[in-house]
Design a protein around this nucleic acid. Structure first.
Length: 779
DNA sequence: CTCAAGAGCCTTTTT
DNA sequence: GGCTCTTGAG
């Protein structure tokens, strides 16, 4: 019995493909990762390829990690020499070695999107561009899409030199690049583009990698942009000893799952692959191993409406399964409650980790969270704000970045007055002007403070800050990263500052900093192939996404929770039970795509819908709300057009609206007066009491639920929620972030009430919260 | 230089 | 509705 016996004939064909370009069109759930890993094994074991000569590229660290693990399991000895990495980390590794050949320093810093924004803002200020008339975002988009297409500022300007907008954008782009270079920094897009530049500039380096990466595999090929395509096609040119030129490039993708056009993904890369490489072998994987028949039929019917696609139809040997549940709710609160109730009901037979709620926009998660907490259902929200993008984490990292690369102006300006050192904007401007005049970096200007006549009293503060940075930098030579970090936190008073203005609402910033320290220590202790350096740590950290931490395969209670994430983040994942709320025209498909002149925008939304539907293995729940609050405005959306694209016989439709809703709401309104009765949200909290699912204990929460609704609070004119809480010492309450806990103390404090609660969550413990801020619900 | 209240902004986001 | 940035007063 060999490892290849478990493959179907098409998969086997792909695995056994030898030299030459190969395009694998792998539908959702058709086992593409299996094919990729088995192909790597086949090349090594059956074709005698040296693992060292294989490169496998993915988009996410998570995908790379999974592939790494599976390759190691399949191959055993030698498997670790296969180069498995993301596009970005591959480029970083190459650039760290050779970037000096295109005039950068090897110790370059990587700028994330926040740094990028800050830099663009500075550039606009410098160029006297009013950011009210011309948005920074526009410039960021222009720069990013230029880089996706490998276009330089000059090339961009030349594309339309008569257009004043083009000229302006090009000026910003050029100045932005100049500053990046001065700071010895690269943004994410640069990582790809500079690698290409390096390959173009230095044939020796290119040839070196071409001969090394004899076999190249690219996962999620439909999401590659032009730059990534260029990079891969440059590399995939191997010359044998006989002088024969081979393109041993194997790409795997699904044009129906291309959902990142807005980030520059070029769907033509996959649609035209065969034109680029005429001797391409094409293999389609159409058997789906994931979803029930009805789910798959629905997915096929939806995506069939797209014009720009390679025809293919997924099929399965599995049963039809149950129909797709489609429910129309009254509003988003009722929708969230319905979902929470259904999860509660189904969770009698299956663990929470089986469930996922996938939404179009991150903003939708709030209501869902609220209702899950009320039902005591464990959940985790993925995406949203990345750990490494949190203010306090970025601050600490900025200190570390400066130690390593003092030219990093963005980082140094971030921390120069954090914690407060009495160095204000005027002072910073003066230093900056001096630095610009002398053509030196901000930090170097700090060292010359005595020579800046405009600076009087602030001078000493600047000098002592610069000295502090220098001494910590020197300290790094003899101490570990974590020791230096701790010292910085203490010496600067940063930790103290956090402790002082610790806010009730945000999960403790101090805890986050602790978590960062833990990560640093873990990094130091984990003996990798590379030596443990600050540069290595910062690099690892700058290339991770929140989604990478997702692990729904792990057993144990710690990982047993419902998953909440956007449809985008869900790609590549699967769940037995999937809910997709907000199936409404205007939300999904989004408003922008409906009003766009470009019909392909709707097609991208449709593919996103296809991705969402095909995440479900057994049960799929679609729903829409007749009305929902969005951006502070009441919206009345029609059901999504994608619902209509699913044949009726696949759907089981329910309208959850109850006939006595209006009667009930009238009763309540008359009880409290008319001032807030006009909004529909008032009713949301009432549905729960009329619903049979909700236990009697929860029915008593009526009042606190009203308080939790911000809209109603406004109507109550000045009544502060929490000034008069309905809970007391000994009551069980729930908090949106901290979960369930018991009230220990209630202390009046400046017209408010300080509530001390002992939470059940392991990492939460006892917290002091202010009643008016913490939206506590009595259970 | 600092704080606090108002104005303005929103999609999706692998790195 | 909620977050971030700006602006104006102390």
């Amino acid at each position: 019995m060999s490892i290849y016996d478990s493959l179907n004939p098409e998969q086997l064909k792909a695995v056994q493909h030898g030299e030459g370009p190969l395009l694998i069109l792998a539908g959702a759930g058709s086992g593409k990762t299996r094919v990729l890993t088995h192909r790597i094994a086949y090349l090594i074991e059956e074709c005698g390829v040296n693992p060292f000569n294989i490169l496998a590229i993915t988009f996410t660290n998570k995908a790379a990690g999974e592939m790494r693990e599976r390759v190691d399991n399949l191959i055993g000895f030698g498997g670790e020499s296969v180069w498995v990495a993301t596009f970005h980390s591959t480029c970083v590794r190459i650039l760290r070695r050779y970037i000096d050949r295109i005039g950068y320093d090897k110790g370059f810093t990587i700028y994330d999107s926040d740094d990028q924004k800050t830099l663009v803002r500075e550039v606009c200020k410098y160029l006297n561009i009013d950011t009210k008339t011309y948005k920074e975002k526009t410039f960021i988009n222009v720069i990013s899409s230029c880089k996706d297409e490998c276009i330089t500022p000059e090339g961009y300007e030349a594309s339309n030199p008569a257009n004043p907008n083009t000229i302006r954008n090009a000026r910003v782009y050029r100045e932005y690049q100049r500053r990046l270079k001065a700071a010895n920094a690269l943004d994410f897009d640069d990582l790809i583009m500079k690698t290409i530049e390096l390959f173009d500039a230095d044939k020796e380096v290119l040839e070196n990698y071409r001969q090394r990466f004899k076999y190249i595999m690219v996962d999620e090929y439909q999401d590659t942009n032009t730059a990534q395509f260029k990079l891969v096609s440059k590399l995939a040119t191997y010359t044998t000893e006989d002088g024969e030129v081979q393109h041993n490039l194997c790409v795997v993708g699904d044009d129906d799952q291309s959902i990142y056009k807005f980030r520059g993904a070029n769907i033509k890369n996959i649609l035209n692959f065969e034109d680029t490489y005429p001797d391409t072998k094409v293999i389609k994987l159409e058997e789906n191993y994931r979803s029930n028949g009805n789910i798959l039929d629905a997915a096929n019917e939806i995506v069939k409406n797209n014009i720009a696609r390679k025809s293919k139809a997924l099929w399965t040997k599995k049963d039809k399964g149950e129909p797709i549940h489609y429910t129309t709710y009254y509003n988003e609160y009722e929708e969230a409650e319905g979902i929470a109730g259904e999860i509660e009901r189904l969770s009698a037979d299956r663990p929470y980790r089986d469930f996922a709620v996938l939404y179009r926009t991150n903003a939708q998660s709030r209501v869902l969270e609220e209702k899950l907490v009320m039902n005591s259902i464990p959940y985790k929200v993925y995406g949203g704000v990345n750990f490494y993008q949190r203010k306090e984490i970025k601050d600490v990292l900025a200190y570390l970045k400066v130690l390593l690369n003092p030219s990093d102006d963005i980082a140094i300006k971030r921390i120069i007055n954090v914690p407060k050192r009495g160095i204000g904007l005027t002072t910073i401007d003066k230093v900056e002007a001096y630095a610009a005049e002398q053509g030196i970096s901000f930090f170097d200007a700090l060292l010359q403070v005595p020579f800046i006549p405009e600076l009087k009293r602030a001078g000493d503060k600047l000098t002592s800050f610069a000295n502090f940075i220098r001494s910590e930098s020197a300290h790094l030579l003899s101490a570990s990263i974590s020791e230096v970090t701790k010292e910085i936190l203490e010496e600067t008073g940063y930790l103290e500052m956090l402790k002082e203005d610790e806010d009730d609402e945000t999960l403790s910033r101090v805890d986050n900093v602790d978590e960062l320290l833990n990560k640093i220590i873990a990094y130091e202790e984990d003996e990798g192939p590379e030596p443990r350096t600050l540069a290595g740590f910062l690099e690892e950290v700058s290339l991770v996404a929140d989604i990478d931490s997702l692990d729904n395969n792990e057993e144990g209670d710690a990982h047993n929770h419902v998953t909440l994430m956007t449809l985008h983040s869900a790609k590549g994942l699967e769940f037995p039970v999937v809910f997709i709320p907000g199936m409404e025209d205007g939300l999904f498909p989004g408003y922008m795509s409906i009003t766009s002149d470009d019909p392909s925008d709707i097609e991208e939304e449709r593919r996103l819908c296809y991705v969402g539907v095909t995440r479900a293995m057994e049960k799929l729940y679609l729903s829409n709300a007749r009305t929902r609050m969005s951006r502070g405005e009441q919206m009345y959306n029609k059901p999504s057009r994608f619902i209509n694209e699913i044949p009726r016989y696949l759907l089981q439709t329910t309208a959850s609206e109850k006939p006595d809703v209006y009667e009930q709401s009238k009763r309540i309104r008359s009880g409290y007066g008319d001032s807030y009765g006009k909004n529909f949200d008032t009713e949301s909290s009432l549905f729960s009491s009329s619903s049979s699912r909700i236990s009697s204990a929860k029915q008593s929460k009526g009042k606190s639920d009203l308080f939790s609704n911000p809209y109603i609070m406004k109507g109550m004119g000045g009544l502060k929620d929490g000034s008069n809480p309905d809970y007391g010492v000994g009551d069980k309450v729930s908090h949106i972030k901290f979960g369930v806990g018991v009230v220990k103390e209630m202390n009046p404090k400046d017209g408010d009430t300080e509530v001390v609660i002992e939470f059940e969550g392991e990492n939460v413990g006892v917290r002091k919260l202010r009643a008016s801020f913490a939206k506590l619900k009595k259970l």
